[in-house]
Amino acid sequence: MTNQTLFDYSPINDRPPINWPGGAKVAAYVGLNIEHFLIDRPSTSIWPGTADLVPDALNYGWRDYGVRVGIWRTIESLDRHGVRASALLNSDVALHYPQIIEAGLSRDWAWLAHGRTNSILHTNMELEEERAFLTDVVDTIAGATGRRPRGWMGPGLTETFNTPALLAELGLSYVLDWTNDDQPYRLNVPGVISVPYTLELNDLALFSKGTTGPEFLQIVKDQYEQLRADSRDSGRVMALALHPFVTGQAFRAKYVDQALEYLAAQPDIWLTTSDEIAEHYLRTSAAG
């Protein structure tokens, strides 16, 4: 049996208060998953019946729609409501879709390392192999964007036991993989924190269960309202996870737009990036 030692138990009602800039109660960000998929590997699928075929035109085409079409609809909505994305970036995206990198650079997106490709999970690596792999991912993103990523989310939210410490060596300061809180918290790795991400307010999870566009919009509102109510004494974080091959589909796009419109209109929200949330928390919270 391996005990969990990466972070300590800390009930949310027994912590020093978090104060967001400008007196905001909820810090919110859009985690925009920008991913590259291999044509000869099974991955996220809309129809399991062909998922093991090579090539799998049905599922690969569905995923590929995101970078060809869906992301550009999402960008229009982000622009319309003044939202900077937190780009969860496979490093292979920089090699295959440079126009997306250019679009993000012109909008000052935050860039997070999201592995190399979402066709391969980040697992089963020895220490030196993983060190070399992470160095390549981080260096590729830095070379394409002109800035080193500060945050990490593994493909499929995967890590090894060594990942946080290796990321710290590379200068990264936060991870999104541990979706167990509504606030940032410090890991037992010096200089590294967890920032909330979400598997629930996540288009891939919601729409795969049959959620409709209007229901998605109501879920976004309900999430914000509850977090706002919870934040009487200490700030909360709201993550909205989007995949362009899901919410970039034409019949869903207007509901994403309406959700962003709603969030942008809230007086108690700090609509920001995961980078800025992490930086503020690291700068203002006591080390421990």
Rank of each mutant, 00 (worst) to 15 (best):
P98W: 11
W20F: 12
S106G: 12
R148V: 05
E200V: 11
F37D: 06
E128W: 14
V54A: 13
P196H: 08
G154N: 06
G146L: 03
N59M: 11
L38H: 13
N180G: 11
G143F: 04
W47E: 13
W109S: 01
P190T: 04
D52C: 10
E276L: 05
P149H: 05
T135P: 05
L282Y: 08
R147Q: 10
W20T: 08
G213N: 07
T160D: 02
Q183E: 13
A265M: 03
V26P: 01
H36Q: 15
A87Y: 11
I34A: 00
S231M: 08
L167G: 00
A253G: 02
N202F: 03
L199N: 11
S77M: 09
V175P: 03
A250N: 15
R15I: 06
A286L: 04
L187G: 04
E35I: 10
F251L: 08
A165D: 02
L88E: 05
T2C: 09
E276H: 09
R63N: 07
T273K: 02
R80I: 06
R80Y: 01
F161C: 07
I100K: 01
S91V: 03
Q226Y: 08
A24S: 12
I39E: 13
V67T: 15
A278S: 06
H114A: 01
D230R: 12
G104I: 01
Y174H: 03
Y255W: 13
D92I: 05
E276N: 10
L176A: 04
E159H: 12
V69A: 12
A265W: 08
D230K: 14
N188P: 07
I277Q: 05
T117Q: 00
G288T: 14
H36G: 05
A110S: 15
F133N: 00
N118M: 04
L263H: 06
Q4G: 07
I12W: 10
T284F: 00
